[in-house]
Design a protein around this nucleic acid. Structure first.
Lengths: 252, 252
DNA sequence: TAGATTGTTAATCGATTAACAATC
DNA sequence: TAGATTGTTAATCGATTAACAATC
């Protein structure tokens, strides 16, 4: 069901002048931003070279995986030395499309939307929220410097002045409708903060931001760790251990 | 490098009273919260039964995967009918450890920390932020009903009154030190909003929340989609297509 | 040069999926 | 009963890793 690889990537080893489109696994692409983030920091800190070993240690990834991932895009290292921090940072900027700025609209200017609008992390990385939309736009018509307009204007505004990415921050009940409207009006990617699995056509990118899902993935482990700690032996454990209430798992 | 499976899971088919610890892949566990979220909504909407087919359609996952995932934990469905929404919701609550509330502390009460503190999505799902910490606690000593204390008190407070989960919302430069302190004082899980790959001992859970990483995974695709749309044929594409500046990818 | 580290291949490991008997 | 759908097996597919020749 997942689309795993895409065939529109560049050639890893351009030979003979003909581009060989190579399938680049989606998991690889999703790791590149973490590589880029670390390299940016290393560059700021003044490092000039770094090995896959060092990168791997800092990112909890095997050195082999880092080398393999990078090899999909080219040969950026030097045997015996490692990678130039400056060079590799720049290559990743190019690969990830971070040499331009990206325009985003925010739909939903309630509690969550306001928190997103106030987030300081987007702008320095090249992402601009150019407008926000709500069913009940504040009469001020403005939110931290971003114009807030009635969502009824969404289609007309974006037709006149397109954006690349839509951010969805409306309640679950309205989220799919908002996604549909954003897609119809031409955004190519959606950052979804609403607690739904958004349905989109094949070539629209979607990423979900949901801290509750992340927490629930962790509580599974916390509970089961606690259970296994209290179960004296495997044979005396209850038949349906999942159903057993867990004691508090934390003690200093 | 990734720990893939864990052996502390329950038996999938308890036979003969002896628990057979089965390895449950981490990817499976990370899908369960999305199943739970959908089922909760179906229950609210009054559905009584649902098939793996219907669940799969709503979640963009194959029905086979849903059945396989659930089969790690037991046999919850009825052939010819599907799953009882009520039953399956409850089973997932038990599996994920959501029958109790989880205590969290928030470290960092700046812009980001305040946005996290104001997020309305934690409490209804059983997650409570019981205290916040900052180097410069506001003289009010309070933030939306949550006590804000000097981070110097972190160790003493948590020793007296342990929590399960630490939320990290400090600048990158201080984040690893905060993670270390939280781990030392006994939290079992960390929700990391800081832009670093946190280093933790083996049995501490970490999840990263970073919308910029999500965006950068999408811009890769947006850029390359635009590139392949403009490249007339494969053979005339540039030798290093990754380095070619991309035109604006969106047009309605 | 000797030492180190890349890029890449091949082997291993793990996850997904198709298919179907069991059964409601 | 006939129809539908689960639970599970086996096959397929894909990702990770170890290992090493190439080479800086």
């Amino acid at each position: 069901m997942h689309i795993r690889k895409l065939a529109i990537g560049p050639s890893p080893a351009p030979s003979g002048g003909v581009i060989v489109p190579l399938e680049i696994p989606e998991v690889v692409i999703d790791r590149l931003p973490t590589y880029y983030r670390l390299l940016s920091r290393l560059q700021e800190e003044g490092s000039t070279v770094v090995s896959s070993q060092e990168l791997g240690q800092a990112l909890n990834v095997t050195p082999a995986q880092i080398r393999k991932d990078l090899s999909y895009f080219g040969r950026f290292g030097k045997q015996g030395r490692g990678y130039s921090v400056e060079r590799l940072t720049e290559e990743l900027r190019l690969i990830l499309g971070l040499t331009r700025r990206w325009r985003m609209v925010l739909v939903g200017a309630g509690h969550l939307g306001r928190a997103i609008a106030s987030y300081r992390g987007f702008e320095p990385q090249g992402f601009d929220i150019v407008a926000a939309y709500d069913i009940y736009p504040d009469e001020s018509g403005e939110l931290l410097g971003i114009p807030v307009r009635d969502v009824a204007n969404l289609e007309a505004d974006l037709a006149a002045d397109p954006v690349d990415i839509g951010i969805v921050a409306v309640p679950a009940g309205q989220a799919q409708a908002v996604v549909d409207r954003l897609v119809r009006v031409g955004v190519s990617a959606i950052l979804n903060y609403a607690p739904i699995a958004a349905q989109v056509p094949p070539h629209i990118e979607v990423r979900q931001i949901d801290p509750v899902l992340a927490l629930q993935g962790m509580t599974y482990h916390l509970q089961h760790r606690a259970l296994s700690a209290t179960a004296p032996t495997a044979t005396t454990a209850p038949t349906a251990p999942v159903a057993t209430p867990a004691p508090a798992p934390v003690t200093p």
